[in-house]
Design a protein around this nucleic acid. Structure first.
Lengths: 203, 203, 203, 203
DNA sequence: TATGAATGAGATTTCATTCAT
DNA sequence: AATGAATGAAATCTCATTCAT
């Protein structure tokens, strides 16, 4: 990206895109803020208008990339003709996300190395990009409209996300201990189990 | 070993122990070489007599710690009364190592974050510590004495190690997707499969 | 030039002046970058905004000082009433420069020890200081306006400069084998010879 | 040179030879004592048994190399059948030395860059190598046997040496302002003049 | 908002010199 | 005499952060 006269939103996006690219290419440790601003075509000080430090932009990136995964999944869900049962909707989203990561292994690596529940939670609630959807609200809406009542929906979400994060890395990148397609049945089974075990008696 | 050599070895070990402790406590990024030498009680220049930089000592540590895991496992194997079949010996070693990591989760984390095949291979062949065993030789001896012939024994070792590295992290630390004890049967099955699929017709 | 640019230029000049003074006083080897920044009253990092290392500032200084010599000579040439013949202009400039060096032996020593054709060529083409004149352009203009055509004007310049550099050091500093005034006739003769031998048939 | 068990004299020579080679190849600044001892195949501490520091070995080298030049010249002088007149002997020695330097330009460069009267005087009086001749004694003997009396023979020697040092560098290396053969008549004339002007009335 | 020069703490690294063996 | 591990002062260089414009 050249040293164009970028407007505010463009500057922020330029910084995020550049940082993502550099983080992926050289790693976070070897990426300096100077690298980022030089490649983004903005001034050093501008970085600090949008981000606290390198780890802030890293977290926002994780949020943003995770949000994009969710958005795409939810958009896809919407286009389907017949409405699904609640569990099937969740599984559909999970499956869609896993397939995206399977086809973008660099992204998987970035998210796996840098994802933590705290960062992720943030991603869901406070979107890093203006256009990012508020996934947490969507999740809660979906829960509410599911016709069921769940205890600790946040913990339930945590369990599911950690389970996915922990179990897909090796199968997707290394096909070990099995490839991702072989893992899916067991994984989705477990997710369904978690969902069901959190169902409360309908009020 | 003379007094001088002893002192020299102590300096080196002091640096390694201190570095390991600091890496585990504060992370590699936040550990400086000054931190290491100050805590180890040696001069700054001394660090550079033994290590190229922070990443060199990190790699040597990974090597050393991995070597210790192997040594303990092999020592344990030797104490057993009845000689095992070849596959059973391998499984015994793997199981011993996994149990060690299960009981030292910080070490697991350190090794998992920093282990790569290149570093590990080095650990096996060129021991970082004088007393470290040459695991690769032992492995090759074990192969030779197994009564079988194997094609690509190095690739076979690679597959097994990567499989273990990739699959035990999450089960040990998070019990996800299952706990390590539940994973073991499937994992050992797979290892036996790898071993058998590399057997050549007996010469 | 804005206040900021002015300040910037002052910082750079302060570093150059301080470095020159320290190089002359203590020699380059015994001058550290810390010495330079402390005496120049700027922060250590500032040094690296303007110069790559000690040898970079040394080269820029050689350039700058050489450029000043040329500028003064050319200014002096301009003030003369009658326009000279081309060879006489060159001789006038050379003579002016030699007289400057004769009266500033420390500068002669600095330049002689550190001048190389590569550095000098750079001085001529890419001025180190904003106000430094582009001597190479002036030389080429002078050539063009001389009414003659020269083959290899760059090589011709090289020969003349090397000849001067090589031959004036000892006469100026030690009056050996003769003093500079005694050397001048032979030297200028040789320069005239070089100029003439590079003349091409007038187009 | 390998890490042989060198006797004392060999170690010293090894250090001198190695240092000379490294000084010529990389320059004195970029040659470290570690470089020297590593290449010489001796221990660090051994260096300090023979030399005070890098500049001490540099000076001793200058002395030694200068001494070799003299020795060869004096040896050559001895082989001549007819005894020369005093001035002719001096000229013969000077001429012999100049021819050696003309055929070893690297040595000329090393000596020119590093020769100073103090160092050189030392070379003449206190030989750096056991086998080095005491040139100063030979010079004084030659004077004594010349049949003439000279005032300030040391100053006379100084003048001659400085004159030679100052004037041969550029002609030998660059043929500027003239080549060394062309310079010789004038140079030897001047030397003869110096010798004659220092003659006192025969006592 | 945006800039980017300036900062300076602190990290890395070098290397001459010492000294116990 | 010889060694070479150890030293640590001092040098180089980096880079996140600030702030005047």
């Amino acid at each position: 990206m050249g040293k164009l006269d970028l407007n505010k939103k463009q500057k922020r996006e330029s910084l995020l895109n550049t940082a993502f690219h550099l983080f992926m290419t050289n790693g976070i440790n070897k990426t300096t803020i100077s690298d980022i601003v030089n490649n983004a075509g903005v001034a050093k000080g501008t970085f600090y208008l949008y981000f606290k430090d390198k780890y802030d932009i890293r977290n926002k990136l994780v949020s943003h990339k995770a949000s994009l995964l969710f958005s795409a999944a939810i958009e896809a869900l919407k286009t389907l003709p017949t409405p699904f049962a609640f569990e099937d909707q969740i599984i559909y989203i999970v499956d869609f996300i896993i397939d995206q990561l399977d086809s973008d292994k660099a992204l998987l690596q970035f998210l796996s190395k840098n994802l933590s529940w705290g960062v992720f939670k943030n991603a869901l609630i406070r979107p890093a990009f203006e256009d990012d959807i508020n996934c947490y609200d969507i999740y809660m809406d979906t829960i509410k409209n599911s016709g069921f009542s769940f205890r600790d929906p946040e913990i339930m979400l945590f369990l599911i996300i950690e389970l996915i994060d922990a179990s897909i890395y090796s199968p997707i990148l290394y096909n070990e201990p099995v490839n991702i397609q072989q893992l899916k049945p067991d994984l989705y089974d477990t997710i369904r189990y978690i969902l069901n075990s959190h169902k409360e008696e309908t009020p």
